[in-house]
Design a protein around this nucleic acid. Structure first.
Length: 211
DNA sequence: GACCAGGCACATC
DNA sequence: GATGTGCATGGT
């Protein structure tokens, strides 16, 4: 199994090259993006982030003092905007309470403690928490998403009904805990899934319509 | 017009 | 503990 996961990575890397994830200029931007992208196309998330950037509101301080209603209007293009505004506010309150909004201070803590903390914030689930840890704080946590699960079950690495943690364990137990590797691997799996989506390859088994 | 997109919480059984 | 549902915009 060890060999298979590694050789899969090497094949992907050779084919697609580095993916340069996460597209964000700061740790804070990555974290905001992680919440906004919940079940949402990244293009829509970028529109929402740009709305915040244009108004120079994409910072902890500004967003923390921004009324939830105003925030909701600005992130509208990302969809589910009312609930996401609420989730962002929950997250900002958590940052304020525990770290005074200082991400460098947050990063000093061990990742499994941070993970528990993040999961206790209403609106942050396993994938969002892990994205924040890996892509925002550079902690060695493997991020699982719908694409990853589909690809792995299709290629018989996991059972079709495996849950988030079973899937994550597969990577965490069999790969060396390397931030760069985890970052690139997850991004490459998403790239693979997208490139072989059902619109271009009607019989692709990775796609939801055919799986 | 239908279907999908880098989830999550909550209700119900 | 499994399964269903609401949340919503924008691209194809």
């Amino acid at each position: 199994m060890k060999v298979d996961l590694i050789s899969l990575y090497e094949k992907l890397y050779k084919n697609f090259g580095p993916q340069h994830w996460w597209p964000g200029e700061s740790a804070f931007e990555v974290m905001v993006g992680a919440i906004l992208t919940q079940n949402t196309n990244w293009q829509n998330v970028e529109k929402a982030i740009n709305n915040l950037k244009k108004r120079k509101l994409l910072s902890f301080k500004k967003m923390h003092s921004l009324p939830e209603g105003r925030l909701a209007v600005l992130i509208r293009p990302a969809g589910y905007y009312n609930i996401k505004a609420k989730r962002l506010k929950n997250f900002l309150r958590y940052l304020a309470k525990n770290y005074s909004g200082d991400l460098a201070k947050m990063r000093q803590k061990d990742w499994n403690i941070l993970r528990q903390e993040l999961l206790s914030v209403n609106g942050i689930g396993p994938e969002t928490a892990d994205s924040i840890l890996l892509y925002g704080l550079h902690k060695p946590v493997f991020v699982i998403d719908a694409y990853t699960k589909r690809i792995l079950s299709r290629h018989k690495f996991i059972n079709r009904r495996a849950d988030y943690y079973q899937t994550q364990d597969l990577f965490m137990q069999n790969l060396k805990k390397d931030v760069k590797l985890f970052n690139e691997y997850h991004a490459l799996l998403v790239k693979l899934a997208k490139d072989f989506c059902w619109k271009s390859k009607p019989r692709c088994q990775v796609c939801p319509a055919n799986s």
